[in-house]
Computed example of a mutant assay.
Amino acid sequence: MFSIDDLKGVIPPIITPVDENEKVDEEGLKRVIDYVLEGGVHGIFVLGSNGEFYALDEASQKKAVEITVAHVGKRVPVYAGIGAITTSACIKTAQMAEAAGADAVTLLTPMFINPNEEEMLHHFKAVADAIKIPVILYNNPGKTTNNISSALLRKLAQIENIIGVKNTSLDFAQTIEYIRVTEDISSFKVLSGTDYYIYGTLAYGGVGCVAGTANVAPKLVVSIYEKYMAGDLKGAMEDQYKLIPLRNTYSYGSFPVVMKDCMNLLGLKVGHPIKPIDHCSDSRMNDIRKVLVNLDLIEPSI
Rank of each mutant, 00 (worst) to 15 (best):
L295T: 02
I159L: 05
V216I: 15
S254V: 15
D232W: 05
D5M: 03
V105Y: 00
H122I: 01
V10Y: 15
E27F: 02
V135S: 00
K92V: 05
V181L: 13
L243V: 04
D5N: 14
D5C: 04
I14S: 02
T213Y: 11
N147F: 12
Q158N: 14
P273W: 03
P273I: 08
N215S: 09
N167H: 02
H123F: 15
A100G: 13
Q95V: 03
T145H: 12
M1H: 14
R247D: 13
N140Q: 08
G40H: 10
V135N: 03
Y178P: 10
P300A: 12
D195S: 09
G267S: 09
N294K: 10
S186C: 04
G51K: 06
D278E: 13
D103V: 08
G83N: 13
K269F: 06
I91L: 02
D239I: 00
R247Q: 14
I131M: 00
N286P: 00
K23N: 12
T87K: 03
G39M: 07
T109F: 00
V10S: 15
H42L: 07
S254L: 11
V36W: 00
E118W: 01
V291D: 12
A104Q: 02
S187P: 05
M263V: 06
D34G: 09
L156Q: 02
A89T: 14
T93P: 01
R284K: 15
S187G: 10
G142I: 13
G142N: 13
A100K: 13
T249A: 11
R31G: 04
G206A: 10
A128C: 02
G28S: 04
P13G: 07
I277D: 13
L265T: 02
G208L: 08
L265W: 00
A89Y: 09
S223W: 01
E299L: 06
Y79R: 06
K92I: 07
P77M: 08
F124D: 02
H279L: 12
G212A: 15
L56M: 11
L56Q: 05
K132H: 04
S186H: 10
T109G: 04
V207K: 15
L7K: 09
I136C: 08
V258T: 09
Q174S: 12
A128Q: 05
D6S: 14
I131P: 00
